[in-house]
Amino acid sequence: MYAFDIECPTTIAEAAQALGGENQALSGGQTLIPTLKARLASPEKLVSLTAIAEMKGISSAGGVLSIGGATCHADVAADGSYKALSELAAHIGDPAVRNRGTIGGSVANNDPAACYPAAALASGATIVTNTREIAADDFFLGMFETALEEGEIVTAVKFPIPEKANYQKFVQPASRFALVGVFVAKTTDGVRVAVTGASNEGVHRWTAAEEALNASFAVSALDDLTVSADNLIADLHGSPEYRAHLIKVMTGRAVSAAS
């Protein structure tokens, strides 16, 4: 790790002020700190977001769950008002990760195998920043890419609570990130299916499944669908064909388990 300065602002305004230039936001650090330890990044200054009270906590109003960007996974796991989301949070990493890592950090990083992006995309969540609100469909732009501008801070994520939802993660055995993760949400506006872990494009929706499940929200609705292996990830743990197969299997299991 190279030497760096660190600042711990207590308001969003102070944080935005501090994030000028080459300074780097730190929101739990479950990806950033290992990157720094490997000397793969050398920011002059880290601006920690986890001391900002207004970015922490979970509230529910009008069927929408609002989670502060600096809220850790363990708190989301314990909340329970959006069951599928809490279950997802309960299976991210290990206890140490869940008590440090935050939802804002996760969606801002948009790791192609992270769990939260699938929940946000499938739920039709809104990513709230210090300057604007961004629909999940417009937020996730590809592997490690988002609509965030330089210095923009994810202050909250708002999840409309669906009628039914479930997340199925088939873990990559070593990292226990998602080799394939599928989040299925059935809302009054229809079914949304989001897939993580599988694609070189990062988290994405499986629209053919959504259409089929809109017609009939049953596992059998998927029977005639196939997933193309094009542009899916090939690595030590799975071929594109295997991931394509798992997308369908995990989608079926999520439909079956949705509640």
Partner: peptide, 17 residues
């Protein structure tokens, strides 16, 4: 796992189970 160039692909716990 080494690749054909002798690079260790499973060089951390992210890939070595």
């Amino acid at each position: 796992t080494y690749d054909e160039n002798g690079q260790l692909l499973s060089a951390s716990y992210m890939d070595y189970t």
